[in-house]
């Protein structure tokens, strides 16, 4: 929902407002995770580790709906639309390009909101396991969620390619994460 500043503001102010808008978005992913059946039966440590390694990827999926790949523009929830060119001033050009490509692919699948939510749950529990203690429990949860995601095939019996195509987005997201989660944010210290 966070507006990127109008042109009149300095790029530092643009940076500040862009950085600020990540905070509520991250909190929403934490709340979303807690609503995933089985997530809260993982240990708190493993919940935190999964969130730390998977939240950026879930955000990338959530932000897809803001990206208009055809128009090369982003529309924030407050209705403000910014062209890719104008957003490049934030110095996130490479991330934005990758986001447009990813959102084009994901968007073309035409998932329903509940299917997108199931996909985001799979994205979260498929995140990097390096800090996880009970890997078995996480893998069981992932298996259950992937089974649930097969919903998209039962809804489209004549399209058996959609499910595998969707799972192929997971490595895309991991690449996005590895390339871009080290982007810098800047917070004013008052």
């Amino acid at each position: 929902a966070c507006p990127v500043a109008p042109a009149s503001r300095s790029s530092q102010e643009v940076w500040d407002s862009f950085s600020q808008c990540f905070t509520p978005a991250v909190r929403e992913v934490v709340e979303f995770a807690k609503s995933i059946p089985g997530f809260q039966s993982l240990s708190q440590h493993d919940q935190v580790m999964l969130l730390k390694s998977g939240t950026f990827q879930v955000l990338m999926v959530r932000f897809c709906s803001l990206f208009d790949a055809k128009e090369r523009a982003v529309t924030f929830l407050n209705g403000q639309t910014y062209s890719l060119a104008s957003l490049r001033a934030l110095g996130m050009g490479s991330l934005l390009d990758a986001m447009f490509d990813f959102s084009e692919k994901l968007g073309s699948m035409g998932l329903e909101p509940d299917e997108m939510a199931l996909f985001m749950a799979v994205v979260l529990v498929s995140a990097d396991r390096s800090g996880i203690v009970d890997v078995g429990a996480v893998e069981q949860l992932q298996e259950n969620l992937i089974k649930a995601l097969r919903l998209i095939t039962s809804r489209r019996p004549d399209d058996s390619t959609l499910f595998p195509k969707l799972l192929l987005r997971l490595p895309d997201l991991r690449t996005l994460n590895n390339h871009h989660s080290d982007k810098l944010l800047a917070f004013r210290i008052d």
Binding site: V26, R27, V30, D182, L184, L185, F187, I189
Partner: peptide, 25 residues
């Protein structure tokens, strides 16, 4: 004077998650 704290997206995300879980303990 230093007016900004700079951190990576990943660190910012980790910070918020740690804060959230600590608050709900």
């Amino acid at each position: 004077p230093k007016t900004h704290r700079v951190m990576t997206l990943a660190d910012h995300i980790s910070h918020i998650i740690t804060q959230d879980f600590a608050r709900n303990q």
